[in-house]
Design a protein around this nucleic acid. Structure first.
Length: 468
RNA sequence: CGGGGAGUGGCGCAGUGGUAGCGCACAGCCUUUGGGUGGCUGAGGUCGUGGGUUCAAAUCCCAUCUCCCCGACCA
């Protein structure tokens, strides 16, 4: 009976109060669309960062940091890029008490600065591939901000790479898509995805190809969880990212860029949340197990503390809640809202029989278990919960995905979920028609759901849906 | 920018011309502790802003600002 959680849900404020707060910085209301990430929300984001970062490094990229301000002229160099971003730029015109000769743009993304420096750093094919990544904040003055999903300022990771050949760049963009993003979202976030190519209309400004990962939220709408772009030689040409190849000939590089952001926190909440709050997959949860001391009587406090040590020793992220001056129910609800996967309740009543109570957050099931069995049971539960969250979300996605053959049917079916329709029967005209009804082509796939190598395959399937 | 809705303690709301209220949260004390315990006391508000009508405005009129929802934008 779990209801659909969206930022528009009546109960949403209760949900995210531990995670995020609306920023209210200006005298006349908030700075539009900004948010303050509270400690628990930050802990979740930090876990995401850690898991994504380790995968990025495994893919060979190194972390760097570039400036927040970008000279306006940099953005102008790539025509499509500036056209795509100019409406949403925040521009600094004054600094140091005087008007600047050239305005500075607060980065909406950093292709241009990376391009400027890659050009200096790359001389030879031996310098390639150059695989860089940065964790940073970016600002995009969107027309319509939405809490979590499209905030004016957000935190993200942006990777920027340069390659000697188109094939190498294309392969790397796919490697990031699968080995970093898909692996993280499926195995850590427990969210099933649809992967594919963006249509020309939906492509990143300045890219030659955009690969995307789309997840279905509780209300059947799609959320773009991340993207990996092939930028062709567009940026290389305008930023002079050249190299000498093995034959001594001057060549333009092929570049890519790719990113995931704090939007994933929203996707996580909307993908797994239920009426009682967050439900965090164990692989992600900052706290996987909470040992809740019911009352500190009959040695329960010592048992709880020992249990915490034991569970931590087994490698779990565990926390002790010994706030016995607060009511039990209050504390139990607190941990449920936070979505901690497993709760172990230690109190004198159960303990008299050598038992404790083990509760799993995702299903709400409570069982009494012998104290000695807890470590093993907890370990099993963490694995089970991770799997069950993924299976539940997958079931929901499959149930709400329709196969149709006409635009009319697609429009109807998109009211409740995803729609798969032959791309040949949609085309750019059909895409425009869908767009008038607020339905967009989320991605193009092969019939078997895999990512197509080109946009020209005759049997491509379009996945269309309403989106955030 | 177009179409809807709303601005009253921290949050959620009631209050259609006559002394600014309720619930939650907050502070203190007591009570309680295996699912948001109950009681007493208390702190906290230029009713978004500016103007107008009136003996009298949260309430009526005009203007304005902001926020939320739907659309164009998007990680």
């Amino acid at each position: 009976m779990a209801s659909v959680l969206t930022p528009q849900s009546k109960d949403f404020p209760r949900w995210y109060q531990d995670v995020v707060a609306r920023a209210e910085l200006a005298e006349n209301g908030p700075v539009r669309g900004t948010m303050v990430i509270r400690p628990y929300g930050m802990a979740i984001w930090e876990r995401m960062q850690a898991e994504v970062d380790v995968r990025i490094k495994a893919a060979g990229a190194r972390n760097v940091y570039f400036p927040l301000f970008i000279p306006e002229s940099y953005l102008r160099r790539e025509a499509e890029h500036v056209e795509g971003f100019s409406p949403e730029l925040a521009v600094v015109t004054h600094a140091g008490g005087k008007e600047l000769e050239e305005p500075l743009v607060v980065r909406p993304t950093s292709e241009t600065v990376f391009g400027e420096y890659m050009a200096k750093w790359i001389q030879s094919y031996r310098d390639l591939p150059l695989l860089l990544n940065q964790w940073a904040n970016v600002v995009r003055w969107e027309m319509r901000p939405r809490v979590f999903l499209r905030t004016t300022e957000f935190l993200w990771q942006e990777g920027h790479t340069a390659h000697a050949t188109e094939a190498d760049a294309a392969a790397y963009a796919r490697r990031i898509l699968h080995d970093v993003y898909e692996d993280f979202m499926v195995n850590v976030l427990a969210l099933p995805l649809l992967l594919g190519r963006k249509t020309v209309k939906e492509r990143f400004a300045g890219a030659t190809n955009t690969l995307t990962l789309e997840a279905m939220m509780g209300d059947g709408k799609a959320l773009q969880m991340g993207t990996s772009h092939e930028l062709g030689q567009n940026f290389a040409r305008v930023f002079d990212i050249h190299h000498l190849d093995a034959t001594g000939a001057q060549q333009d590089c092929w570049t890519t860029s790719w990113g995931v952001s704090t939007r994933m926190v929203g996707g996580l909440i909307m993908g797994h949340g239920d009426d009682a709050g967050l439900r965090l997959p164990p692989a992600l949860a900052p706290t996987q197990v909470v040992v809740l001391l019911v009352r500190d009587e009959a040695g329960a406090g010592d048992v709880a503390a020992k249990l915490v040590t034991e569970l931590a020793g087994a490698g779990h992220r565990v926390e002790l809640d010994a706030r016995v001056d607060q009511g039990f129910g209050r504390r139990a609800v607190d941990w449920e809202l936070k979505g901690v996967p497993v709760r172990v309740e230690v109190g004198p009543r159960d303990l008299a029989e050598g038992n404790v109570t083990v509760v799993r957050r995702d299903r709400g099931e409570k069982v009494s278990a012998p104290l000695a069995s807890v470590p093993g049971r907890v370990a099993d539960l963490l694995v089970e919960i991770q799997r069950d969250l993924f299976d539940d979300a997958t079931r929901r996605r499959d149930e709400r995905t329709a196969e149709v053959t006409t635009i009319e049917d697609a429009l109807e079916a998109a009211k409740t979920g995803f729609v798969r329709i032959p791309w040949a029967t949609v085309g750019e005209e059909g895409e425009a028609r869908l767009a008038r009804e607020a339905v967009t082509v989320r991605c193009l796939q092969r019939p078997d759901g895999s990512v197509p190598d080109t946009a020209d395959d005759a049997d491509l399937v379009a996945v269309v849906a309403r989106s955030y």
